[in-house]
Design a protein around this nucleic acid. Structure first.
Length: 525
DNA sequence: TAGGTCAGCGCC
DNA sequence: AAAGGGCGCTGACCTA
């Protein structure tokens, strides 16, 4: 059973619309006395809820209601628009409804902080529930392919997970974070400005050059090195490391600490951590490959040193689970080149033993280079050897690259489609760049699908327990659970990983091991 | 003052 | 060791 929901607003009541299997209305819209009444319908029917967008679920969560399954109209529309080779076109509900009605869609309106997006600036106010029902009904016949249907369900589940994780928040000890910053940077400056250790390093850089130099200004730093007889093209850390000059050491130390201070320092702590939780806003499908993005807070770039501040509540534990070498395993399954991913053990070590004289670093570089399209230097030589050893896997990514260079579309395993070529992409340099993009797209997007299905499975496994998903980063999940339950949660994560592999690839021999560890802090291994 | 781009670096 | 995919965020720098 499917039920469409309009959560209403300040003045409008919430309404539901029961739907037939083909998406057509079964009866008239029904007003609800309160949003909490959704919980009764969930208990009674466990329907697939047809929602406009992930934020619709935020209203439910705010009312204390959780649901099991959803069809997210805007997320699915994004997938379908992309499958038509028209990604980039508006896929908001209003735009989709306008297309259905044969009107020219407005650009997708931006979401503000409260409520649904602004309605059309001109014309009559739209009936959100009617639009949800109509667009959903038009989407169903386009979801006959089982893989695309799985993708739509997984993407929709992702929308639910993202809102649940935002609502719960990542446990964050501000006192631990503050102590870490104080240790590395010195006491917090009262009026802003550079913390003591940064000021001292900047002064050391200045004295090494014999004049004041702002280490934050690449142009100034380049000029200072040029005066000292070192003509650099960039001030990147790896280039600086090769320069013999007394300013290099304090400058590198400055860069590292300045980054910490600017990106995850006290200002970040003040802005993003409330009541012991960091509440990042995830943007499901925010990246063309289907990876998630985040808005504000840089949740997907938390530097390793800062992870010490992520700690379980007293009596609780964190379950940290990350997929081992997900992308090469995905490539092995995609291409049928199963020799690439034998068994569960470390892929790079296994490959190194067979092919690279036991050098795990070279094996890893070779595989990553193959998937990223590196061609020059040492990486190029390593890829040549992979091409001999794993011809099918390499043919798979080479084919994707060729398609991209020729301006064609490529698709992930479940059917997420890359953006179309843009004018100018036929120029040789641009075509090669697009080829590297599509080469990586087929792997990265399929890996994102695996992770999405994992999340969806895990969510259902844990639906009745107190354990919470609290963080997700591409191929890694964090859960917060009562300490006594943590081992069982770790088992559930592994089970979900197995299921995800089977749901994507059937009975492939390729395994997708997930290393789950029960810890108190995110920095522990 | 507000907005854009760039360089650089964090994560996967 | 060094040029190869996807992102978000910051300060510097420039323009309107």
């Amino acid at each position: 059973m499917r039920i469409a929901l309009d959560p209403g607003g300040r003045d409008a009541p919430a309404r539901v619309q029961r739907l037939c299997d083909d998406g057509t209305p079964a009866g008239a819209p029904e007003p609800l006395p309160h949003l909490r009444a959704v919980a009764d319908l969930e208990r009674e029917h466990a329907p697939r809820w047809v929602l406009a967008r992930p934020r619709t679920y935020r209203a439910l969560l705010d009312a204390g209601v959780r649901v099991g399954r959803a069809h997210d109209v805007e997320l699915v529309e994004g997938i379908l628009v992309g499958a038509d080779g028209r990604s980039g076109e508006p896929h908001g509900l209003a735009a989709a409804a306008a297309r259905l009605a044969g009107r020219v869609p407005d650009p997708d309106p931006p979401l503000d902080d409260d409520g649904p997006p602004a309605l059309f600036t001109t014309g009559p106010e739209r009936d959100e529930l009617a639009d949800v029902v109509a667009v959903h009904a038009a989407q169903l016949p386009r979801l006959t392919d089982p893989r695309l249907r799985l993708l739509a369900a997984a993407e929709s589940a992702g929308g639910l997970v993202a809102e649940e994780m935002r609502a719960h928040g990542l446990p964050w000890r501000a006192d631990v974070h503050d102590a870490l910053l104080t240790e590395l940077l010195g006491p917090r400056p009262v009026l802003g400005g550079r913390p003591p250790k940064l000021a001292a390093l900047a002064a050391q850089v200045g004295s090494a050059f014999g004049r004041e130099v702002n280490p934050d200004s690449p142009a100034e730093v380049l000029r200072a090195f040029a005066r000292a007889g070192h003509e650099l093209t960039t001030t990147r850390a790896w280039e600086l490391r090769g320069v013999d000059h007394p300013a290099v050491a304090p400058l590198l130390a400055y860069k590292e600490l300045a980054r910490l201070h600017a990106a995850h320092g006290w200002a970040w702590l003040d802005t993003w951590v409330r009541d012991g939780r960091f509440h990042p806003e995830y943007v499901v499908g925010g990246v063309v490959s289907g990876r998630w993005a985040t808005r504000g807070g840089g949740a997907l770039q938390i530097p390793r040193p800062v992870r010490a501040a992520v700690r379980a509540d007293p009596g609780w534990a964190l379950v940290v689970a990350d997929a081992a070498q997900l992308e090469p395993r995905v490539l092995a399954a995609l291409s049928g080149d199963h020799a690439l991913a034998p068994g569960e053990y470390d892929l790079y070590t296994a490959l190194a033993a067979r092919e690279f004289g036991g050098d795990r670093g070279r094996a890893k570089l070779a595989l990553l280079s193959a998937m990223y399209g590196a061609s020059g230097g040492q990486a190029g030589e390593l890829v040549v050897r992979l091409r001999q050893r794993f011809p099918w896997a390499m043919a798979y990514v080479d084919g994707a690259a060729r398609a991209g260079e020729q301006g064609r579309l490529v698709r992930s395993h479940l059917g997420r489609t890359c953006p179309p070529a843009r004018p100018g992409d036929e120029e040789p340099a641009a075509a090669r760049a697009r080829g590297r993009f599509t080469r990586n797209f087929v792997v990265q997007a399929t890996a994102a699908e695996w992770a999405l299905v994992l999340l969806a499975e895990l969510r259902l496994l844990l639906r009745d327990g107190p354990a919470e998903l609290v963080f997700f980063q591409h191929d890694e999940v964090l859960l917060h659970a009562p300490a006594a339950l943590a081992p069982a949660v770790a088992e559930a994560v592994s089970a979900a990983a197995d299921t995800a592999g089977r749901r994507l690839f059937g009975d492939t021999p390729v395994r997708f091991p997930l290393q789950a560890r029960v810890v108190d802090g995110y920095d522990e291994r």
